[in-house]
Design a binder for these strands. Structure first.
Length: 429
RNA sequence: GGAGAGAUGGGUGAGUGGCUGAAACCAGCAGUUUGCUAAACUGCCGUACCCGCAAGGGUACCGCGGGUUCGAAUCCCGCUCUCUCCGCCA
C-alpha cells in the first residue's frame, strides 16, 4: 500500500508511476485520494480541538469537586453536552473518511522502479540476458506430457493426471516412482543450496488467515485466486511468500537482525480461475505444485543490491541444473500488483519450443511493509518501514518439464549431475 | 468438545474512577567513574495522526468493538485470542 503522505508530497511521481503501469484513471484516483485526505485532516483538526476543550472542562470539574464548589461543577457539566454531541458526529465522519480513503488505497498498485520498461503485456518485457545452449533434440523427441507416459512404474505414467483427477480434480497430478523421487530430490537440493547461501530454513503453515492475505497484498483484490476453507475462514497459500513474510507482520525488527533471509519449502495452491487453453497442458500450469521460496527483509538502501543477489542466486541454480534460461525485466503492464521491480527467470522447454517461467524475483520496497507494519529503528531514528523481497528458488513442475524435454534421448532421460546424489539415479528409462 | 484464568510499552510486570501515557525492573541510547574487561552511578528512552518553517502544541491508543460518566487501563456488555486442566487424537 502506498503511503498517503508520500502521494501528497510526490503527486507527479505517483502519477507517472501509475501511468507506467497503465493504471486506469490515475489522475482521477489520485485527485480523489488527495481530496479525501484533505477532508480527513480538516475533520480531525476540528474534532481534536473539541476533545481538547472537553478534556480541559473535565479537569476543571475535578478541581471544583475537590474544593467543594458543587454548583460551579454542575454548570461546567452542562457545557460539555453540546461538545459531546459534536464530537460524536465528527468521530463518525472521520471514520467514514478513513474508510473511503483505505478502500481506494488498497486498489492502487505499487509504483514501478525507474528501470522498469514501459509496456502493456508480456510482449513488452525486456530480455536482460540469455544463458546456455538450446539443445537439438532427436527426430522423434516428445513434449513432457508424452514422455511421462513412458517411464512410470508398472507401465503406467510417472506423473498421473487421470489418477489425480479421480481423487481431486484437474490440475492435481499424482507423482509416482522416479518422478516422485526426482521432485523430493529437487526440494532437498534447493533447500541445501539456500542454506549454503545463508538463508535460514522455516516451515510455515500452508493455510493463512485474512490478515496475512492482506499483509502481502493477495487480499482483498485477488480473493478468487486462492482456495478458501469457509468453515474456518482460512486460505490455502498461493506461495510461501505469504506465510513467511507475514512472520514479520506487526513486528519492530531489531536493527542487528537485519538483513533477514529465509528459505522455505511448501506446496502452493492456485485456483487459476479463468485460465485455460493449449499453454496449460501437462505440468505447465497446475492447481497444486511444490516450490522453494526465498524471502528477504532489508534496510531500504540495501534492497536493490539484495534483489540482484537473489537474481544471481536463482540463476546459479539454473546453471547447476544445466538448463538454458533467460532473465526478463517485467514491464509496467506485466508486473505484479505489489512489486516495484520483478525479474522473471524462464527455462527453455525444448520439445514445446517455449520459455517457461520458473522463478519470479521481486522487490516490493515498502509496499508490503506498510500493510504489514513491518518496521525497524535504523541508526537511532524513528521506526521506519523496511523493504521486503522474495523469489522462487525454484518452482518445481516446470523444471521437471524442462529436464524431461531437454535431456531426453532415445535411451531415456538424463538427470542433471547435481541432482544425482539426491535422487540416486542417473537416468529415467 | 467441557471447565477455569488471563490479554498493559522492545521484554518482564505493577496499577480498581481524576495527581496514570502509564510504577519498577530488563534491554537500548548518552554520559560519569575506571590499568583493561566487568561493575556502579546519572540522564534519556512507546506508537500513530493532526497543527506548526521550527521550537513546540493537540488528539488517540493499556487485545478488539460498544456502553456508563463531566472524566475510564480501572466500572458494564459483546467479541477475539492466549494459557492451564479434562476429553479426543498423529
Amino acid at each position: 500500500m502506498l503511503q498517503i503522505p508520500f502521494i501528497r508530497d510526490n503527486k507527479e511521481l505517483t502519477l507517472a508511476g501509475l501511468r507506467k503501469r497503465n493504471f486506469a484513471n490515475a489522475e482521477a484516483v489520485v485527485e480523489q485520494l488527495l481530496d479525501l485526505d484533505q477532508q480527513r485532516r480538516d475533520t480531525q483538526k476540528t474534532l481534536d480541538d473539541g476533545l481538547a476543550r472537553q478534556n480541559a472542562i473535565a479537569k476543571e470539574i475535578g478541581q471544583l469537586m475537590k474544593t467543594g464548589q458543587k454548583e460551579a461543577a454542575e454548570a461546567a457539566k452542562a457545557e460539555t453536552a453540546d461538545l459531546k454531541a459534536q464530537s460524536k458526529t465528527l468521530t463518525d465522519q472521520l471514520a467514514d473518511l478513513e474508510q473511503q480513503l483505505q478502500a481506494i488505497l488498497v486498489t492502487v498498485p505499487n509504483l514501478p522502479h525507474s528501470s522498469v520498461p514501459v509496456g502493456r503485456s508480456a510482449e513488452d518485457n525486456e530480455v536482460v540476458l540469455e544463458w546456455g545452449e538450446k539443445p537439438i533434440l532427436h527426430a522423434d523427441a516428445q513434449p513432457h506430457w508424452e514422455l511421462i507416459k513412458r517411464y512410470g512404474p508398472n507401465g503406467g505414467p510417472m506423473i498421473d493426471f487421470d489418477l489425480g483427477n479421480k481423487i481431486s480434480g484437474a490440475g492435481f497430478p499424482v507423482y509416482k516412482g522416479k518422478a516422485a523421487r526426482l521432485q523430493r530430490a529437487m526440494i532437498n537440493f534447493f533447500l541445501d543450496e539456500a542454506l549454503a547461501a545463508d538463508y535460514s530454513e522455516v516451515q510455515p503453515p500452508i493455510v493463512i488467515n485474512e490478515a496475512s492475505g492482506f499483509g502481502t497484498g493477495q487480499l482483498p483484490d485477488k480473493e478468487g485466486q486462492m482456495y478458501y476453507a469457509t468453515a474456518d475462514e482460512l486460505y490455502l497459500i498461493p506461495t510461501a511468500e505469504v506465510p513467511i513474510t507475514n512472520l514479520y507482520r506487526d513486528v519492530l525488527v531489531a536493527e542487528a537482525e537485519l538483513p533477514i533471509r529465509h528459505v522455505g519449502y511448501t506446496p502452493c495452491f492456485r485456483r487459476e480461475a479463468g485460465s485455460w487453453g493449449a499453454h496449460v497442458r501437462g505440468l505447465n500450469r497446475l492447481h497444486q505444485f511444490d516450490k522453494v521460496e526465498i524471502v528477504r527483509i532489508e534496510r531500504p538502501e540495501n534492497s536493490y543490491a539484495a534483489l540482484e543477489q537473489m537474481s544471481q542466486y536463482v540463476q546459479g541454480l539454473l546453471q547447476k541444473l544445466e538448463l538454458p534460461y533467460r532473465v526478463l525485466r517485467l514491464c509496467g503492464g506485466d508486473m505484479g500488483f505489489t512489486s516495484a521491480l520483478t525479474y522473471d527467470m524462464e527455462v527453455w522447454s525444448a520439445a514445446q519450443g517455449r520459455w517457461l517461467e520458473v522463478s519470479s524475483v521481486s522487490n516490493f520496497e515498502t509496499y508490503q511493509a506498510n500493510r504489514l507494519k513491518l518496521r525497524a529503528k535504523l541508526d537511532g531514528n524513528k521506526p521506519t518501514l523496511l523493504h521486503t523481497l522474495n523469489g522462487s528458488a525454484l518452482a518445481l513442475p516446470r523444471i521437471v518439464a524442462s529436464i524431461l524435454e531437454n535431456n531426453q534421448t532415445p535411451e531415456g532421460i538424463r538427470i542433471p549431475a547435481v541432482l544425482v546424489p539426491y535422487c540416486g539415479f542417473e537416468v529415467i528409462s
